[in-house]
Design a protein around this nucleic acid. Structure first.
Length: 769
DNA sequence: CAGGGACAAAATGAA
DNA sequence: TTTGTCCCTG
């Protein structure tokens, strides 16, 4: 009697082969996670392996948490001592634990994408780079690529040669690295690269871990990049009980440096490796699997395997052509309503997948109208919100005062009368004396050019930070958060703003503090550093929370590893999926790599579906505010016709022109449409309308004055959508800016403070039919 | 120094 | 259509 009796023969072989290198090629839905968890349980229960001798690496925290939970179900509390984590979190742990020996500061900050951009901008400034000739984005991209290729600035420069820019980039790369070091910060790439480098330089420390991890497992091996690959190699070198699980057909992170060769060449790297294939699928119907097999069969660069099932054929796939993206969204929502109503499905059974985050918008609007519960993974990420990032920046400074990027972010937030000029003076002093900004604030009297006011304000800021930093080890994390919220003046600032927007932001901060409490309760070892680290390494999936009761909207990338009875794949159009860039690359470089990666993504999408799969595309779609024509994705043709039910078209015709889709009211509700009947003849928006006219109002004033403001230059009757923006706007002090009209459209922005809070489009009326 | 308005740029994906 | 920045003004 063994725990492995629950597995099929192939799964059992994969779980029981614990000695030596093992490659498990696990197709989608073949019970991969099951194999991994049973393998761990088997090691502990039947092989007598101590949990702390096992290392399991995943790609997301969510996957790590799930794995731990499932192992716990099998072996109980012992699961707590297994090292389970993501590459990034495990590396961060190595770097902190060994900080002293590695010559690092323990409290390093992890820079996210924004911080990185801010840092590179500073480098641009000091190198007098005009961001017209070179965008921060492209430079960051090149630096990141260099890091993932394990090239330091020197070797990057050495490789230079042809490209004239390359020398300059190498210089910027050098400066960027120096900046990070000065700020005691590491970016995402550094976490991996630095760990590998340090292990290379400190073999005795590496050896400690090599000995410790007698058995190591890596999930999603097809998505490892070079440093991850090398780290695996380093850690597994001693015991060589190294098990990797992956699916070459699901490699979708090339843009992040993932190298398909890592899995394709595993048997070459480890000649004594055993390979086990898991091809029986327990997830999808036969038809869905057939579609997936057909699509992926067009790829050349793969190991080759074919999923099969002994389950039912299932329903045919539905292919739906829609007039516009709006209509597409409506189709999805209407179908969902039916399936949830009489189809016997729950909202939690459904996922709506798309290629780009931007596509979520029209879908969300429709869902909102429908009243069905939904959640969007990764669109407006909680930890990307301004107020959250501000508070986190404060916290970062408390533990790492050298964090200039964080300091710049909040030194004048709330407004303290410390402007750019004063900061420049401080920065100059700091540079001259080899200090970071915070340290420089200790010598305010010596800083040239600072006026008394700025000195006073900076002194006050420093005092607040000092006070909170002193308290950080005395009080609990949530208390620290609360105290920071108050003492920094942030709370008062939001109170003063006194509008619904500020209220939401206050609530968000309260939620952050609540999360701190939860963090303290669920962790053994709680430090400010560990909290900040957890937050920095959080993935959008990790933030999504409980998705079991809601329709889930997410990108195809986020969907990897998940499954749903009901799946919609939207925006199946050329130039969107595959992306224009991938198509362009296949044309210019004459290679299919980019297209093949898109195709793998398509394969991932299809194999998420258990029972029903809808594929939708639009004839026309909004992009940057105007309609563009679209063509169906090539991937749709790669699925054989007999797998589709009768092709459906959802097109609305303009009754007046008898042309498809020319009727801009087609997407309005019947009520809105009928409101138009008997309306006055269209009026032209006056040509001499002053440009940029704006109307201001005071706090507490309600809609009517604003409508009057519009009526001043355009008759109110001309607008159908007025009610819409009125509903959405909030009533603080503000202004309305009338932008130029575009034919029949009139664009109106409602601004509050420095940011546009709500933009509405009001449509002039059409002539009656 | 703060805030407004003109103007340019944007969006592939994510730890 | 939305967001970010740059320059100008009070």
């Amino acid at each position: 009697m063994s725990i492995l009796d629950d597995l099929n023969p192939f799964q059992r072989e994969a779980a029981a082969t614990v000695e030596g290198p093992l490659l498990v090629l696990a197709g989608a839905g073949s019970g991969k996670t099951r194999v991994l968890t049973y393998r761990i349980a088997y090691l502990i229960q039947e092989m007598g392996v101590e949990p702390w001798n096992i290392l399991a690496v995943t790609f997301t925290n969510k996957a790590a948490g799930e794995m731990r939970e499932r192992v716990e179900n099998l072996v109980g509390d012992l699961a707590k001592d297994i090292w389970i984590g993501t590459f990034h979190s495990i590396c961060a742990r190595f770097l902190r634990v060994e900080a002293e020996k590695f010559g690092l500061e323990r409290s390093f900050t992890i820079y996210d994408e924004d911080d990185r951009r801010a840092a590179i901008r500073r480098v641009f400034e000091s190198h007098k780079i005009d961001d017209k000739e070179m965008t921060p984005r492209s430079v960051i991209g090149q630096i990141s690529r260099a890091k993932n290729a394990m090239l330091d600035p020197a070797s990057f420069a050495a490789e230079a040669g042809e490209a004239p820019n390359r020398k300059l980039i190498a210089e910027l790369y050098t400066a960027y690295e120096a900046d990070l070091r000065r700020n005691n910060a590491l970016d995402f790439d550094d976490l991996l690269v630095e760990t590998v480098r340090q292990f290379d330089n400190h073999p005795e420390i590496l050896e400690k871990y090599q000995r410790r991890f007698r058995f190591s497992l890596v999930d999603e091996y097809q998505d490892t990049n070079k440093p991850q690959y090398m780290l695996c190699k380093q850690l597994a070198a001693h015991h060589r009980n190294f098990c990797v699980v992956g699916d070459d057909d699901q490699s979708i992170y090339q843009f992040r440096g993932a190298d398909l060769r890592n899995i394709l060449d595993f048997e070459r790297d480890y000649p004594d490796a055993k390979t086990v294939r898991l091809e029986q699928n327990y997830r999808s119907t036969a038809r869905i699997l057939e579609a997936a097999n057909q699509v992926i069969g067009n790829n050349k660069d793969r190991k080759g395997k074919k999923l099969w099932t002994d389950g039912p054929d299932g329903d045919l796939l539905e292919l739906v052509q829609c007039d516009t993206d709006r209509r597409e969204a409506r189709f999805v929502v209407e179908t969902l309503r039916k399936q949830v109503g009489s189809g016997g499905y729950t909202p939690g059974d459904a996922a709506i997948l798309y290629r780009t985050n931007a596509q979520s918008r029209s879908l969300e609007e429709e869902l909102q109208r429908s009243g069905m519960p939904y959640t969007i993974v990764g669109s407006i990420r909680f930890y990307e919100r301004r107020e959250i990032k501000d508070l986190l920046a404060y916290l970062r400074i408390l533990t790492n005062p050298a964090d200039d990027v964080g300091l710049r972010r909040v030194i004048n937030m709330p407004r303290r009368g410390i402007g750019d000029t004063s900061l420049d003076h401080l920065q100059r002093y700091a540079l001259n004396h080899g200090l970071n900004l915070f340290a420089a604030m200790g010598f305010l009297d010596q800083v040239e050019g600072l006026n008394a006011r700025a000195k006073k304000h900076m002194g006050e800021f420093k005092a607040i930070i000092d006070e909170l930093a002193a308290a950080k080890d005395e009080v609990t994390l949530p208390e620290l958060g609360q105290r920071l919220f108050e003492r920094s003046g942030y709370q008062q600032m939001l109170l003063d703003e006194n509008n619904p927007e500020a209220e939401t932001r206050t609530q968000n901060i309260e939620q952050l503090i609540a999360f701190m409490t939860e963090f303290c309760e669920t962790r053994d070892e709680v430090t400010l550093d560990s909290f900040l680290e957890e937050v920095a390494l959080m993935s959008p999936m990790d933030e999504a929370g409980d998705t079991s009761r809601m329709i889930t909207l997410m990108t195809l990338h986020s969907a990897k590893g998940l499954e749903y009875p009901l799946v919609f794949m939207c925006g199946m159009e050329e130039n969107l999926f595959p992306t224009a860039r991938a198509i362009e690359e296949s044309r210019s470089k004459q290679n299919q790599q980019a297209i093949e990666e898109e195709r793998r993504l398509c394969y991932v999408g299809i194999t998420r579906a258990r029972q029903r799969l809808y594929l939708t595309y639009a004839n026309r779609r909004y992009a940057y505010g105007n309609m563009i024509d679209c063509e169906p994705s090539r991937f749709l043709q790669e699925i054989p016709d007999e797998l589709y039910s009768v092709k459906r078209e959802v097109v609305e015709f303009n009754p007046r022109t008898r042309q498809p889709g020319r009727n801009r009211f087609a997407d309005k509700s019947p009520k809105e449409r009928s409101d138009r009947s008997g309306a006055p003849v269209r009026k032209k928006i006056p040509k001499d309308k002053p440009k940029g006219v704006h109307y201001e109002w005071d706090e507490g004033v309600k809609p009517p004055p604003q409508l009057d403001a519009f009526a001043d230059f355009v008759d109110q009757d001309d607008f159908l959508a007025v009610g819409q923006w009125v509903r959405h706007a909030s009533w603080g002090r503000g202004q309305i800016i009338a932008r130029d009209g575009h034919g029949e459209n009139m664009k109106l922005s409602i601004r509050f403070g420095p940011h546009v809070k709500k933009v509405a489009v009001a449509y002039a009326q059409l002539e009656p039919a």
